[in-house]
Each structure stands twice: as structure tokens, then as C-alpha cells.
Write a protein that binds this DNA or RNA. Sequence first.
DNA 1: CTAGGGTTAG
Length: 514
Amino acid sequence: MPVSDLVSWNTVIVGLARNGLYEEALNIVRQMGNVNLKPDSFTLSSVLPIFADYVDVIKGKEIHGYAIRHGLDANVCIGSSLINMYAKCARVEDSHRLFCLLPVKDAISWNSIIAGCVQNGLFDEGLKFFRQMLIAKIKPRHVSFSSIMPACAHLTTLHLGKQLHGCIIRNGFDDNMFIASSLLDMYAKCGNIRLARCIFDKMDLHDIVSWTAVIMGNALHGNAHDAISLFEQMEKDGVKPNSVAFVAVLTACSHAGLIDKAWSYFNSMTKDYGIAPSFEHYAAVADLLGRAGKLQEAYEFISNMHAGPTENVWLTLLSACRVHKNVELAGKVAEKIFMIDPNNMGAYVILSNTYAAARRWKDAASLRVFMRNKGMKKTPACSWIEVKNKAYAFVAGDKSHPFYHRINEALKELLERMEQEGYVPDTKEVLHDVEEEQKKNLLYYHSERLAIVFGIICTPDGTTIRIIKNLRVCGDCHTAIKFISKIVQREIIVRDNSRFHHFEDGKCSCGDYW
DNA sequence: CTAGGGTTAG
């Protein structure tokens, strides 16, 4: 059989696969056998992306086996598509192994392993490969940047994201849609919504991803009205919202307490766009109802979910129960969660905090003992700040920190000025059964305050301070930071586990609703 | 007259 025959068969397969006609492409591959043609490296690397898209690791592995038997596994194109296929099937350790074994690595094989890591949440690993790629003198391409940027976004490493942005501009990649979307998302997640919006406005074209990224960014920063008007503009521009876009706009409503708006979007999603609500949509609405104190309504809403509620949806209601100190419903909700996952740590923590908030110290304590016996540990609160391209982490009351004494001095000084301005510590949320004086001390050393004071000491006057915290900011710290922003005349941006707070001149952008 | 990698998600 002449080679050109195989070439023309491959050409047809590629054409079909690239146009999304996967079944037709696979049919052609099957027919190759009937005319005694054997798939070669071109065939395999055209077919593998199909199984990556199908998340079909069984079929993918079959191809992998075929490649090994025919001595094609050292081919760089097959290698990249195998790395990609395993990563898409959540088998990134297999991708990793293949990448190491690959004798020749080009830019695309590097991009495959970087994207594979980032898509599986291995952000540090992805960054490590990115650096190794540079060391190996492989020039990053546009795909390298759009693959690695989400790692900066998730890790909130603004300095890295900015460096990469510089590279992108120098390479003239800044007009690429994928890169612009990932960049604007990175800036939004790292606390700079203004720059995120700037990048969005400079784009020539907007697709559903860039719209969603800018809507979500505004939602996270509490700019509900911007988020909603962007969503409406998107609809006007003829870009059809998808399920993710609705998550974004519902998140915006949820962070601003816009119940009626949220309902109208939730209903329009199914009615106007035929999108079935997923648990994220339910979670956003449940969160909104819960925080507005409509706990019973939220309970019924969740109970009527089509697919059956997930533990995450119940968890949003459980934290609402804690906020509104509804111990009875909290118990009922916790039970629902333990039916799905008996070892759900988050649920035990919130439940014990609910008891403590209702001053039921004994119940809280016995639950903590139970948790300790089960070997469950509460996540310690931690805040961090970037100063001069370095991240500094703080945990509450950490005396081992090298800057502890300087921070402590500054904290005392600041506290005096705060009290002169009218700050009264609010110990209601201190969930320990200890003396009032001790409670105050616990508050004064919350991790976010240590990080903020460190930032004030280490940066010139007027510099914006950006803090990231792994847990929710407590009510008293929220008040304290408002005072601090006024006293030191600095903009302080705090990202907790669910949203951003912009503190400026004694006020917070969330309007005290969060 | 042939092949592989990318952005949004409480």
C-alpha cells in the first residue's frame, strides 16, 4: 500500500477531529483496518485529543499500549497528546511520568505538562515546570502564558503575575483572547479589579469566557451593580450566557444581598436559556437566603434540589445557621451532611462554633473533644502579604515570627490611636469560654492584623496593602481594619475565603454585608 | 502533501 494513501486517510481524520466530528473521525480509523492500513504516529496524535475530550482513559490507554507495541511512544507529538489525555482524565501522575520519559521535549510537550498540572490544581508544580522550561532554554509561547496564568490567579501571587504580564507585552501576546482572559482573571483574583477591568475594556472582542471572568471579578469585589450591568450588556451583545456565567452573576447577587435579582436570574437560566441549575447555582441562592436570615426558606429550597443536595450546598446553610445562631436547624443540617460524609471537618467546625456562638460551651467543648479523638484538626487561621516580591505568612499570636517584636510595638501604638478614634473591641465572636480581658488579647493578635501591621511597617506611606486570609474575616477585625485604614490613610484590600473587602478612609466596600 | 498544548466555576 503506498504511503500517500495513509497520508490522505490521516488528512481526513484530522479534518473531522478538528471540526469536532469525533465519531466520524473514529469511524474512519476503524475502516483503516479493512484496507490493511496501520495507524501511524500522525493517526494516533490526531485521535488522542478525542479521548482526552471524552475523558475516556480506557480508550486512551489502549492507544498508549498500541503506541508502545509499535515503538511510537518516543514520538514527541504522541507524547504530548498522551500527557494531555492523562491530565484531562485526572491522572496527572501518569502525565508526569510520561513527560520525564520523553526523550525529546519541545515547547508543546512543556506546555502540555504545565497545563496538565494547573488544570489539576497543582499550581506550584505547574510553576516549577514553567521555570524548568525557561532553564531548558525553551521559549514560552502564547499557550504557555494562558496555561500558567491561572496558577498565579489561584495562588494570588501578584508579583509573579505582573512579571508574566511584562513578558506577555514584550512578546506582543497581549492581543490574544486566551491570554487577556487569564490576565484579567489573575488581576481580579489578586485584588486589582481596576486593572482587570482595564484589560477587559481594551480587548477588541469578548467571548463568554472573558465576559464571565470580568463579571466574576466584580462579584468577588462586591461590585454587584457593575457585575449585573456587565451581564446585561453581554446578553445585549448577543453572547449567550452559559452555566458558568450564571454562577458569576448569582455570586454577585449573593455578595450584595440582592435576593430578588438572584431569583430572576435563577429562573431565567432555565426558562430563557435551558440551562439546568447545578449545585453551584443552588449554593449561591441558598447562601443568599441563609444570610438574609431566611433559614427555613433556604432549607426547603435545598431540600427540593433536583440532583439531591451535595455537602457543599448544605455547608452554606450551616454557616448561615451559625451567623443567625440557630442551633436547632444547624443540628438538622449537620446531620444531612454527615449522612453524605461522616468525616466532614468543615461541618464539625461550624457546628461547634454555632454552639459557642449560642454560648453553649459544653456542647461546643464536647464536640471539639470528639473531633480531636477522630484526629480532625481545625484549619488554623493564616494571613499573608506580599512585600517586595516576597510573601510573608502570619498565624494568630505567632510569637516565633522574626518581626514579632516590631509588629507588637506597632500594634500597641496603633491600638491606642484606634481607641482614641472610638474603637471598642467586640468580643462577641470570640468563640472561647475565657475571660473578657483574654478575649480582647485573642482579637488583637488575629493573623490579618499582624499581616496588616507588617505591611504598614515595611512599605512607604500611601502604598495599598493587600492581604489574603484563608478563613472569613471576623466582625471585630472588620471594624478594626476600617479604623486602621483611616488612621494610616491607606487603602487596605483584604481577600478572605469568599470575597474581597476594600477598606478606605474608615469604610469598607462591602457595606458591612458579607 | 498529515500530528500534539490554552482562558471563566461558592
